[in-house]
């Protein structure tokens, strides 16, 4: 559309710039705060240019954590978060893709019943079932462990549903051609379905990685041992209450660190991600 309406151009740019500022400014403030000392931050007004304490603050949190709040090094927390996000993302994809394969390609008794059962759990996010899940996790003795952090979150109705929808668009003849070619069902799955789903897998990986990384309530409940904190929980534990007591410069540095991996995943996988959402290769 080619239009020459200066006011419209001006107005739409103004809105866009306002939007960018609204999103980016808090991030900038966070970064600035992470390079200052606590005294600078609590001063009114707070300086709006980065200070000289970048290395100091970041190496402090990465290796030693905060002084007054959680004392676990953020490096360790990032590692925990990474494990959690990766295991959840890969676990969800692996389980849901196999489940959808079964639902779409095999005729077994109560197939529809199982599908609807999975579908209905879409309505039950972690928060709704958190108390019984906690009880189960504690009975199994998996509190404060990677298993406890990841296992209860791995089943995914959303991903199962998405893969089911994708598989249903794959022409039946493809499966039949593979059968005539002599491929066993698993061989068909590995040789044909998986390669066809790779863009969907990539898109889901991005979504699920961020979902896993940003988990708050569940790790908050089941991690009491500092060495098992995730980055998100680390931030929460560093805020000890009371403005003066909290080491905001360290909290902000941790926040910036916690923000990097998801951002990195999105940036690196952007091409795949967009492809997986908009296009199907069939």
């Amino acid at each position: 559309m080619v239009e020459n309406r200066p006011w419209l151009t001006f107005f739409s740019h103004a809105v866009l710039i306002a939007g960018v500022v609204a999103v980016a400014f808090p991030l900038y403030i966070t970064f600035v705060a992470s390079t200052l000392t606590l005294e600078d931050i609590v001063k009114v007004p707070m300086p709006l240019v980065p200070g000289p304490h970048f290395w100091e603050n970041y190496s402090q949190v990465l290796t030693a954590g905060s002084e007054r709040g959680a004392a676990a090094p953020v490096g360790r927390m990032m590692f925990n978060s990474l494990v959690m996000a990766l295991v959840i993302a890969f676990g969800k994809i692996a389980i849901s893709i196999i489940a959808s394969f079964a639902i779409v390609y095999f005729r077994f008794p109560l197939r529809n019943f199982f599908f609807w059962m999975i579908f209905i759990t879409l309505m039950l996010p972690v928060e709704v079932r958190i108390i019984p899940t906690f009880k189960v996790a504690s009975d199994l003795g998996i509190l404060n462990s990677y298993v406890g952090l990841t296992l209860p979150l791995i089943a995914s109705a959303t991903a199962t549903f998405l893969f089911r929808q994708f598989f249903m668009t794959v022409p039946d003849e493809l499966a039949e051609a593979a059968r005539v070619d002599g491929a066993s069902p698993m061989r068909f799955f590995v040789d044909v379905l998986l390669p066809l789903s790779k863009t969907s897998i990539a898109a889901l990986f991005v979504i699920q990685f961020i979902y896993g990384w940003n988990q708050y309530l569940w790790p908050l409940l089941i991690t009491t041992d500092e060495s098992m904190y995730t980055a998100v929980i680390g931030i929460k534990r560093m805020i000890t209450g009371g403005d003066a007591l909290t080491e905001w410069h360290l909290v902000m540095a941790t926040a910036i660190l916690a923000l990097l991996p998801p951002a990195l995943v999105v940036v690196l996988m952007q091409k795949w991600f967009v492809k997986g959402l908009v296009e199907t290769e069939k």
């Binding site: 022409p171 003849e173 493809l174 051609a177 005539v180 290769e281 069939k282």
Partner: peptide, 27 residues
């Protein structure tokens, strides 16, 4: 089907989209 020693050509071809022509035939 694989034990019947038949080969089938489908109306919409049913080629494996991600494989090259060579691999489609060789699969």
């Amino acid at each position: 089907p694989k034990d019947r020693d038949i080969a089938m050509v489908f109306q919409n071809y049913a080629l494996y989209p991600h494989m090259s022509v060579y691999d489609n035939m060789a699969y």
